[in-house]
Design a protein around this nucleic acid. Structure first.
Lengths: 219, 219
DNA sequence: GGTTCCTCTCAGGACCCTCTCAGCATCCGG
DNA sequence: CCGGATGCTGAGAGGGTCCTGAGAGGAACC
């Protein structure tokens, strides 16, 4: 699941250098040598982030960004430029770029800024794998592999979340009672909620270990 | 519906200067003088963006960022620092910051970078997708897919706009109260306006997450 | 002054979640 | 194959959360 980066740079030497560095970090890099090609690629093969030189043939860098933004493309963009005045930077950022780096720059800093762009683009709520789908504790939902989304109640989510945090581990009823069902007295609640989860997500999500308790996954 | 910015800066003079400049742009600014207070405010009253000085008393700037990130707080953060080496900038960005600006800086550039942060987070796009139509914040209307146009009041538009800016995110009542209903005291206003939106646009526009709050879209 | 719309409060009732319980199914040792 | 133990499942009470209609107060406009 490597991030895809679109590099729009007309200086062949610099482009090759950046391509090599980015590829070395594990990114999938696509290169464009002019603004027109960059625009076309950005629209047809959406990337996770873009690096755009400001001085480009065909379509100028800031113009390229403005055109993308006006078409609803929200890909984070870092602008490279030799122009270093405050006014230039303000202009670049207000054109819709996320970041602005002036030449000359050090590769390590560029890489750090690219990581910052991607982190924001790709980051999302904590997600836990459960058989047949992905549990999202923030939204209290499970997005199933078939695309359907299942809503969970607070207790259902807490129960599944605890099991999913330690796949393979067997939790005893008393343990689950303590951690999930604070105020209950009878251990039967656990059974009931296991039942609820199975009814919503299939029998495979939780398996019973007779005499011991429950565990994530099919036997 | 102005953006909220949390400013964590121990230099009182600089803090006052920045506060005045940001407020002048229409942002709602909250100030913290040390890292500990900043951490607490960031967790209890989530902002749309943060500006954090690197050298802070109580909890150091990068430490503050790391702690927030480890708790799942994704608010975009701009770091201010007197340390200007490439290694310092890389360190700051890799700690989880979105941007890194070194002192001395010009106010206009800081403002442009703040705008870039906010653009990402609270998409300033005039038109936002809502289930069954498109929300136009300028005209405070929703153009529905069937062609009909629905007018919204100021609060209705603000509420829908906030939810639509982050599809999928669950907003708590207290959060919505702070951001949309500045002067109200009872959280039930939120319920009432959710009801108004649903009556105008159908039950599918906003879904309830029991015990947590509301979210854009149908379950 | 009257009208209209918007904003906010409030209270009753609807609905959902949580938990208990009892009867049935299933498993395992004898 | 039988009996006891363990787990499964549906029904239902209780309590909390949420929905929704009614209405007061204010601002804008005629």
């Amino acid at each position: 699941m490597s991030a895809r980066i679109l590099l729009v740079e007309d200086d062949a030497d610099l482009a090759r250098l950046l391509d090599r560095a980015l590829t070395g970090e594990g990114y999938a890099v696509t290169r464009a040598g002019d603004g027109h090609t960059g625009l076309h690629l950005a629209l047809t093969r959406p990337a996770d982030a873009m690096i755009v030189d400001r001085g480009l043939p065909a379509v100028e860098g800031l113009d390229l960004i403005a055109r993308l933004r006006s078409r609803g493309v929200g890909t984070p963009i870092l602008v490279l430029s030799a122009r270093n005045s405050t006014a230039d930077r303000v202009e670049g950022l207000d054109a819709g770029a996320e970041d602005y780096l002036t030449k000359p720059f050090e590769l390590t800093e560029l890489m750090a800024r690219v990581r910052a762009l991607l982190r924001r683009h790709l980051d999302h709520a904590v997600q836990l794998a459960v058989p047949g789908g992905v549990l999202d504790l923030d939204h209290r939902t499970v997005r199933r592999d078939d695309g359907a989304s299942v809503e969970l109640s607070e207790r259902e989510a807490a129960l599944l979340g605890l099991l999913a945090a330690r796949p393979g581990t067997v939790f005893s009823r008393s343990d689950l009672l303590d951690r999930v069902f604070d105020e209950a007295e009878s251990e039967t609640v656990v059974d009931t909620y296991v039942h609820y989860c199975r009814r919503k997500l299939g029998r495979g999500v939780i398996s019973t270990v007779r005499g011991l308790g429950y565990r994530l996954g099919a036997p």
